[in-house]
Amino acid sequence: MTVGYARRYAPLVTMPPSVAPALADVTASDAALRRFLHGLPGVDAVGLDARAAALGTRSIKTTAKAYAIDLAISMIDLTTLEGADTPGKVRSLCAKGRAPDPSDRTAPSPAAVCVYPDMVPVAREALAGTGVLVASVATAFPAGRAPIEVKLADVRAAVAAGADEIDMVIDRGAFLSGRYLKVFEEITAVRENCARAGGGAARLKVIFENGELATYDNVRRASWLAMLAGADFIKTSTGKVAVNATPPNTLVMLEAVRDFRDATGHQVGVKPAGGIRTTKDAITYLVMVNETLGDDWLSPHWFRFGASGLLNDLLMQRQKLSSGRYSGPDYVTVD
C-alpha cells in the first residue's frame, strides 16, 4: 500500500530543488530572507476577522451538507498525542479509522491516523491493508526545543518505522527572534530526512503554532517561509496551547497558499488543527477553502483537519441526515 501510494503521488510530493526562479534569491542569506518576509503585505486584521466571520455564516444544507460531512470525515487526521498513549489506545483509534461508524459501512475513512513516533509501528500494523495513512509528529513535538540532531533523528526514526507523513514543529524561538534562515534551514534539513530508504519521501507538514506567533503578519511570514523551504503542508498548531486553529489565522494561511501557487505554480496543502470540534466548525473551514482556494484544494490530499472529537460529531450529523433523528454520543465509539 505504502509503495503504491508513494508511486502514485511521487510527482506531487517531490518538489523541485528551487521553488521558482523569481524566489530563488530570497533565501540566499538571512538578510535577504528577512527583507522578503518583512516585505510581504501586512494583514488587515479587522478585515480578516470580518471576512472569516462572513464565511462562517454560509448556510450549507441537505445534499451539500451530506457531501461536506463525508468530505470532512475523509480529511481528518485522527489524532492521539498524549503522554498516556498506549499501544492499545492507538490500535483502538486505528480500528476507528478503518470503520468510523460500525453501524454504517458507507461512512468514509479518515485520511490518516496521527501519533507520536514511537507508536508508528503499532499504527502501521493496525492500518495494514487500508487506505488510511500513518502520520507522525516529530522534531521534539510539541515544543521543538531540542538540538537539531535530536530532531532529525526523531524524523528518521518515524520515517523508518513507516510514517507516510511527518508533522514537524518550527523553532518558534528562532522565528520570533528574527532568525528566519535558521528556521528555513531546519525545515530544509527535516525535509531531506523525510526521504525513504526505498525512494520517495514522507510528506512534510510544518506546524507554526499560530497561538505563539502573536500576530497575523507573523502567520503570513511563517507560511511563506515554510513553503519556500519545501513544506508539502502548512499546519496551524499543535493543539497543545490555548489558541489553536481559528478561522482567521487559517484564512491567512489559505491566502498565503493561494498566493504561493500564483507565484511559483507549486501547490501546498493546509491543515488546521486543534479546537475544531463540531460539524459546523468543519463546514466553516470547508467553505473558507472553497471560497479562497477553490476545488483544487477540496480533497484529503490538500486539506486536512487535525482532530479527534470532531469525527464523532460528524458521524452523529451523518446519522441524523440518514435517519432523520438526532443521534447521541451513545451511538458513536468513545475514544
Binding site: 446519522q319 432523520g324 433523528r325 438526532y326 443521534s327 447521541g328 454520543p329 451513545d330 451511538y331
Partner: peptide
C-alpha cells in the same frame, strides 16, 4: 416530534 425521536433522550 424531534424530542421523542432523539436518540440521546
Amino acid at each position: 416530534a424531534p424530542l421523542a425521536a432523539h436518540q440521546d433522550v
